[in-house]
């Protein structure tokens, strides 16, 4: 094996590339969010921290805080993503488990199928769904013929029979659909690495299959679950096109849509940048949680 300094040297350009592009981008957002505007409300970024102006940040905070104008959007976003993540876990875990541990010679095929969706970009696939789910679309006709719309109506999850008519359930399912592969792949890797001998030992010592799963497999796959969860939670919070394409109604707008509205729209780009900063700060919580569990896993491995 090459000495450590070789790898350090080889990784340096890549690390520099990632760091520079991330930091510069993020700093530009900060400079605008903490910047100023001209008398014509054109944003003027303040690159020097000594010049920072917290007016917009304060306004964004009061908008997004409980009782603020955008508070309902915050609640809605958290709710949608919580439900979407729970569904992702329920759908994704069995698939990852099966592919990693039971599929035998089919495991390669299943993995290939999981990667398959990336052949076509998420937006293109959503655009296809907008046609399938339109009231005269095949998917929508099939679902309604099966009575799924009536079931959802009875459960209070849907209103009417128009799947694209501002239905939270459509937005949530679309989020799950879009992000579930990102959850499965890291979980698959983690389950695949799981030491078979530990499971055998558990069975040999008299644990039932269910108990083995609960007390051995599940705890050991926890880092994979967390990794998958964080990997999908971060982009979901910034996602705006899923909602745009699947609903477009003010009733289902998420935080990403509001930020997009400020940034694309009129003379309030600084407020949009400040909101982006707050969202990033909020997502840091997830990141910290993930990094902590990663470190714990490493410690345990040692």
């Amino acid at each position: 094996m090459a000495p450590r300094w070789v790898w350090r040297l080889l990784s340096a350009p890549g690390l520099l590339f990632l760091a520079v592009f991330f930091l510069v981008a993020f700093y530009a957002v900060v400079a605008v969010g903490l910047g100023n505007v001209t008398t014509q409300f054109q944003p003027v970024p303040h690159w020097n921290p000594l010049d920072w102006n917290v007016g917009y940040l304060r306004e964004a905070l009061s908008n997004l805080a409980p009782g603020g104008q955008m508070w309902p959007v915050v609640v809605r976003t958290v709710l949608y993503i919580a439900v979407a993540m729970a569904l992702t876990l329920l759908i994704g875990y069995p698939v990852a488990y099966y592919a990693a541990r039971c599929a035998g010679r089919w495991s390669g095929l299943i993995l290939a199928l999981l990667v398959l969706p990336f052949w076509i970009s998420y937006i293109m696939r959503l655009l296809a769904w907008t046609n399938l789910l339109a009231s005269d679309g095949y998917a929508s006709e099939a679902l309604n013929a099966l009575g799924v719309d009536r079931l959802f109506n009875t459960l209070g999850l849907m209103e009417g029979d128009d799947w694209l008519g501002g239905q939270p359930v459509t937005v949530i399912i679309a989020l799950v659909y879009g992000y579930v592969p990102f959850f499965i792949l890291p979980l698959y890797a983690s389950l695949n690495r799981l030491d078979q001998r530990l499971i055998e030992t558990s069975r040999d010592l008299g644990a039932s299959a269910a108990e083995t799963f609960r007390r051995v497999i599940l705890p050991l796959s926890r880092p994979g679950i967390y990794a998958g969860m964080v990997l999908i939670a971060l982009p979901m919070f910034g996602d705006y096109f899923t909602q745009d394409l699947m609903s477009g109604s003010p009733n289902t707008n998420m935080v990403g849509n509001i930020i997009n509205g400020y940034v694309q729209g009129g003379p309030d780009k600084s407020l949009g940048a400040a909101m982006t900063m707050l969202l990033s700060a909020f997502l840091l919580i997830f990141m910290a949680f993930y990094l902590r569990s990663l470190r714990r896993e490493q410690r345990e491995a040692e």
């Binding site: 700093y27 530009a28 054109q42 944003p43 910034g238 990403g256 940034v263 780009k269």
Partner: peptide, 15 residues
């Protein structure tokens, strides 16, 4: 940089 930062803030420039 912003374009790389997800494009969400692409509108900010040209200020």
């Amino acid at each position: 940089a912003l374009a790389l930062g997800g494009g969400a803030l692409a509108g900010l420039v040209g200020c």
